[in-house]
Write a protein that binds this DNA or RNA. Structure first.
Lengths: 357, 357
DNA sequence: ACGGCAATAGTCAGCGCTGTCAAGACAGCG
DNA sequence: CGCTGTCTTGACAGCGCTGACTATTGCCGT
């Protein structure tokens, strides 16, 4: 492998060194069928000797593929976006693809959004696009992509199933497990901090929780407060739920940020977590371990979702097998914010340093 | 502007419609000199009519430029990385450039790192690279980039000044302002939570703080504890600092995560912020408003740093004027975690809901 | 032994643009 | 009026690769 310097080797250099045609090199590089082992060996040796790497620009100009997939995100969801990027990046890197991230951030009307996307597609060659919340359910975006014949994969969609390959987790089932956890620990007076009803995940989590509770503990009393997934709103929701005479013994905040808000509300009201109030979040993001005690929450496999979505797009070309939806497993991460009412003990491992404060 | 469909227009289409040569279109598109106004008008009209957008792949194949800049980050610093991305992305978008983000994440030895970078450079055409902490001070990385003749800009370097254009803020001066704030509010028993001494910013903040204190309040008593910039370490450092008889009245944690940790330590020890202990962070990241009371901290203009760095790289081609280092302003954001010892009041706006708990 | 067919290898045009070179237009000057 | 120098425009090759096509080989059955 030559160490940079001079000029980078081209396919022609490899072909000459191996004593074959350029096209044969191309075939080996692209793993096309109908290539003899002997020729493949010769070419691969030459490639190794020259340290040859195909030029992406030439590849995308001459061919149909661009070896680039787009990732369309809203960077306002900091942790979420970063995890998506990590996952998509990893899948691309492993397959020699490039990732082109576009921040669709600001909420503008659909027409403007589509004009923006049109511009993105015009200025870049993409093999596919990973569409993430809250665009996963935006039919203007999907219509546009389809009108352009651009392959795309959806991360965590909640509507229009089957419209394009999707990768998701089962929010409702996960929320159901939280219900199980609460009931198992003897909680019957329960608070629920919801997200915006326009947010698919928020709705699924609420519904999944409520339905499960209705089955396993029909006698449970549930009070709801809207939290819109923000820390500050979580504080308000927490106070609303807790600053009453018959306050709940456990609160399910449907994302970690609002759960942290609820914990802050507890602190403000002089309530101890989990002794006075048990709390469960959802997402397992940075916040979950930036509060004390550490938050019991549902781990959402965000990076894996994006990774699978990228793979869906990459595989379209690699082997044209029909790609189906992918359901990824979640995991209830029991940390230190749930108390077992029946034994009067906290559940799971002891909270860090909770016995010497 | 034609609405997609059909084939995307090429430079030849524009040339024919305008009745000029392809090269003339190229000249107009690239704002080359020696083009008559008349010709320019004709071409621009044709471009608008066809909705022509140059093909980036063809452009980089035929020419020297790729209209792509790389951003090398370590995504473990979630908030920081995302802000860098936002800034770099914005600068690129505004100038018709693309951003190619590479996650250099895991800490491996320099040789392996360079091999990795070599691979990145081989597989992508880049006009320049934005190098960010902790790579900004890595001379193996700089040596490599220089050996490849790849232009690069450094974000927040702390050593090797002048080696390549740099964009940074004055960490030491900002830390000095925190010292001013503490002293102005009557604090003389002060705790300092440092970061790793291998982290340039950590060192600059510590030094800047200490030097300023020495000038304005030589009688002040300062206790230090290492916090390595993590929440958990902040808790430990906080306890170490506060769980003593003569505890400090104010603590400067040199980043927000460790400041949040210190706040948690206060809660664990039954101390109230800011009544018992005043706290100041550094960064103004997500944590600063995910704790209660909201954290007084120094706002670091991360997105702007990356934006300027991108601009440095882009301008190199636009107009070849010599590019110099850029110093961006910081801002002390006074929120609710500092108490004024002289008047026995908290400084700044009242903490949210602090009078009805 | 021969046609037929798959597997294998090569030829060549051209993707859409830019760099180089050269030609034409035009002004200034002796 | 011819000559030089500058501005403006165009012709053309080719960046590095792939897609479509053609040529060659080896193997089969009959």
């Amino acid at each position: 492998m030559n160490v940079s310097g001079s000029q980078r080797a081209t396919m022609l250099d490899v072909a000459r060194l191996a004593g074959v045609s350029e096209k044969s090199v191309s075939r080996v590089v692209n793993r096309e069928p109908h290539v003899s082992q002997k020729l493949r060996d010769k070419v691969e040796a030459a490639i190794a000797e020259l340290g040859y790497v195909p030029d992406p620009a030439a590849r995308s100009l001459a061919g149909v593929r661009s070896f680039t997939v787009g990732l369309w995100i809203d960077t306002r969801g900091l942790h979420y976006s970063m995890k998506l990027m990590e996952g998509a990046y990893e899948a691309c890197r492993a397959h020699g693809y490039h990732l082109q991230v576009e921040n669709l951030g600001s909420k503008i009307d659909d027409a403007a959004q589509v004009a923006r996307l049109d511009n993105i597609l015009r200025t870049s060659r993409l093999d596919g696009v990973i569409v993430t919340p809250l665009f996963s359910d935006n039919s203007a975006v999907m219509d546009f992509l389809e009108s352009q014949g651009m392959p795309y994969a959806r991360v965590s969609p909640f509507t229009h199933y089957g419209r394009a390959p999707a990768v998701f987790m089962d929010d409702a089932a996960a929320a159901g497990e939280v219900a199980d956890l609460f009931v198992r620990n003897g909680h019957r007076f329960i608070g629920l901090v919801t997200g915006s009803p326009r947010h698919g995940a928020a709705v699924a989590r609420r519904t999944g929780f409520l339905e499960r509770i209705a089955i396993i503990a029909p006698d449970a009393v549930i009070t709801e407060a809207e939290g819109n997934f923000a820390f500050e709103a979580g504080i308000a929701a927490g106070r609303q739920l807790l600053d009453v005479a018959d306050r709940p013994t456990a609160i399910f905040a449907t994302n970690d940020d609002s759960a942290a808000g609820v914990m802050t509300a507890c602190a403000q009201l002089g309530l101890t977590v989990p002794d006075d109030v048990s709390i469960c979040g959802f997402d397992d993001n940075l916040m979950a371990k930036s509060v004390w005690p550490y938050l019991t929450t549902v781990h959402q496999p965000i990076a894996e979702l994006a990774q699978q979505a990228a793979l869906l797009l990459i595989d379209r070309h690699a082997d044209k097998r029909q790609t189906a939806d992918v359901l990824l497993p979640h995991r209830l991460v029991e940390r230190d914010t749930i108390r077992d009412l029946r034994t009067s003990e906290k559940v799971c491992r002891p909270a860090m340093g909770d016995d010497d404060a």
